[in-house]
Design a protein around this nucleic acid. Structure first.
Lengths: 230, 230
DNA sequence: ACTAATTTTTAGATATGTCTAAAAATTAGT
DNA sequence: ACTAATTTTTAGACATATCTAAAAATTAGT
């Protein structure tokens, strides 16, 4: 018996899945071929390891690859990547909704849960959670067919003085940022009014839930918002 | 960097965890050192692979091992094995209770979920499920400190004519057996009355929920029961 | 107690995924 | 356009976990 179980069942290893996810995630921002270095940085590994893995994924027709030219996911690869993102975000919803996790705690556990293989599990979880469209950070959850509701792309930093908006998601979901938001009582759905913008450092004064607050540019440029229709 | 992530965090690989679980499971029935062959058979691998892994586990003080003499779990190893069993069974309860899995479908998925590492996850899941004491097959779920409620050890086959009992668990939890039970409407908690025992083939006629049924010895010797106090 | 059968271990390979260091190709600066 | 800097790939190792085949130890039969 020379084939591993993964190969026999046509299943991917966790590592392979993580590479696909990383390539998918990077190609969302820059829309051209993804560089070896970018993948290495994302996965905290070395470029040489990435080259090796890319060759393997290329042989499985999950990525299009030409030496020195970076990679792009094939349709097949993209489908798998989206399926993993879907599972990751569904589990995040589950952890927050039912298991008392806060939004800064879910990531590491969801990173593990996303690799559990069972179509029924994903479907039933989706149903149990009542088909959520967004995860606890406001990121959209792909549906069963891989369709992704597109994200708000307006940042709080671009809102003008005296305008109001609703917090739709976070661009940075590092625990430190999320804890800051918790502390400032900024949540998904919070209504924010921009009172004053300081030209000097791009910070702004905002009103949120009866309270006034000063936030740095670093904060405002990491919050996705939707302008309120007035 | 020569140490893998697992080693740095003092975490075990899924394979190592599966070996501990297998050794634990085997040592429950025969209470002496567990043979290399028995482990190999349980894990569907080769004796030589088992020897290699045992050496590794022995170096980590998870098993006591002497060449040619089989292995026993150390306290530390046993603790870890029990923790994995606990996680496995909690997930089984979750899958049946909330995700519409039947008792013959849960095993493979739970085998994957049991390796997810997060103390908080296990604790919160336990709480969410309302601290169940038994999994869907009637097997006891170890508590947070590793205490295991001991299992009923009476088999239906040992019940005398005209005596009644309650189904407490299954010894064999293969899908085919579980599907048979579903079909015959035999569940955990079902009240069974033994009407007649056939000496020739050890089969028996039973009454279950207003209906009469004939079951083979193969069935009756795989059902754990508790005699009803009358 | 001595052979025979079985079990267990060792030795040497294979496959996956990683790394370092050096070579090759690409991109950027003048 | 030509060097210099950067990026990417190759080559060779290493660690984990597996296997086959052969050797060693144990157990069982007479």
């Amino acid at each position: 018996m020379f084939l591993s179980l993964c190969r026999m069942k046509n299943e991917l290893s966790q590592t392979e899945e993580n590479y696909l996810k990383a390539i998918f995630s990077i190609s969302l921002s820059r829309n051209k071929a993804v560089s070896t270095n970018a993948i290495a940085e994302k996965l905290k590994t070395k470029a040489s390891s990435v080259t090796d893995m890319i060759k393997k994924l290329s042989e499985k027709s999950l990525v299009d690859y030409q030496k020195y030219q970076g990679v792009l996911l094939t349709e097949k690869g993209k489908k798998i990547a989206i399926r993993i993102v879907r599972k990751h975000r569904l589990w995040e919803v589950f952890l927050v909704k039912y298991l008392n996790f806060s939004w800064d705690e879910v990531h590491d556990v969801a990173e593990q849960l996303e690799h559990v293989k069972s179509t029924k599990l994903t479907q039933e979880l989706d149903c149990y959670l009542d088909y959520p469209t967004h995860d606890p950070h406001g990121d959209p959850i792909p549906d069963e067919n891989g369709k992704i509701a597109h994200h708000s792309d307006t940042m709080l930093s671009s809102i003008k003085e005296q305008e109001s908006c609703i917090v739709m998601g976070v661009k940075d979901s590092s625990p430190s940022f999320l804890k800051y938001l918790d502390n400032a009582n900024i949540k998904l759905g919070s209504v924010v009014c921009v009172l004053e913008k300081i030209e000097f450092d791009d910070s702004m004064h905002i009103e949120i839930g009866e309270k006034n607050l000063s936030i740095s540019h670093q904060i405002s440029k990491n919050l996705f918002v939707k302008k309120t229709q007035s």
